[in-house]
């Protein structure tokens, strides 16, 4: 589904933020993307979301080589990707409802087709009574839930989440992660960027680890199977 080969990325003429990144993510998988702040997690997600181009290397998404894919096809690819950004990226002039419905609106769906689903999803994330509220009036946690609802509303093939539980209480964080797990079970590939190791300990999922722009570790299939049998082995490997 996602293939990176020797990918490098830099902003403008600055230093390389990502270096020699190579990995393959299979359809229907779930990965945690970890690493300290500044390691390049968000930049890696931006490459997968096609908002930035690599300075070198090859990226293939849903079987399309991005180097040769015409630009006008990118929106179709992006519609298969849901994303939750660390800074939420909500549109302040739209209500919570309109923010969540945005991916469906740009896909030219009629409101009658999605209204019920959007309200149901907002209710599920605990914002049923705030559907008309605009982002500036929402708390950080509420904004995050709106961002997550927007990311999953179109049932994407790939979900990218950058610190999705950073601004919510542990109970809501667990609830949102369970939503991601459920989506994953339904076939959505999920990549969750986090530096909350407690989440990694709670959920048995493969890990992609970044440090100084390099991918220093990626859980192999064998290691993952072993870890699922012995959850504590994960802690040992990180140590």
């Amino acid at each position: 589904m996602i293939r990176f080969e020797n990918v490098g990325m830099r902003y403008g003429s600055g230093p390389e933020i990502l270096r020699d990144i190579s990995f393959h993510i299979a359809p229907g998988s779930l990965h945690f993307l970890t690493g300290p702040s500044g390691a390049g997690k968000t930049s890696l997600l931006k490459l997968m979301l096609l908002t930035h181009r690599p300075s070198r290397g090859l990226i293939s998404l849903f079987g399309a080589d991005l180097a040769t894919t015409p630009r006008h096809v990118f929106p179709e690819i992006r519609r298969r990707v849901g994303v939750v950004f660390q800074d939420f990226r909500l549109l302040d002039h739209l209500s919570a409802y309109d923010n969540v419905a945005l991916p469906l609106r740009v896909a030219s769906l009629r409101e009658a087709e999605y209204r019920e689903n959007v309200i149901e999803l907002l209710t599920w994330v605990g914002l049923g009574d705030r559907i008309d509220a605009r982002p500036p009036t929402l708390s950080g946690g509420e904004k995050q839930r709106v961002a997550i609802a927007r990311a999953v509303v179109a049932k994407p093939d790939l979900l990218l989440a950058d610190e999705p539980t950073g601004n919510v209480d542990p109970e809501m964080g667990d609830r949102l992660l369970r939503l991601f797990m459920e989506l994953n079970k339904l076939g959505t590939s999920v990549i969750i960027a986090t530096h909350d190791f407690a989440i990694l300990d709670r959920y048995a999922a493969p890990e992609m680890r970044l440090r100084d722009g390099y991918m220093t570790y990626m859980t192999t299939v064998q290691a993952q199977k072993q870890r699922e049998r012995h959850p504590l082995s994960r802690k040992r490997s990180r140590a």
Binding site: L49, T51, H72, P75, E76, R78, R79, V83, R89, L90, L91, L102, P103, V106, A107, R150
Partner: peptide, 16 residues
């Protein structure tokens, strides 16, 4: 620009 980036992100075509 931020709004346009978000619209791009959710799959909006340029013509939209």
């Amino acid at each position: 620009r931020d709004t346009i980036e978000v619209l791009h992100m959710v799959g909006a075509q340029d013509r939209f």
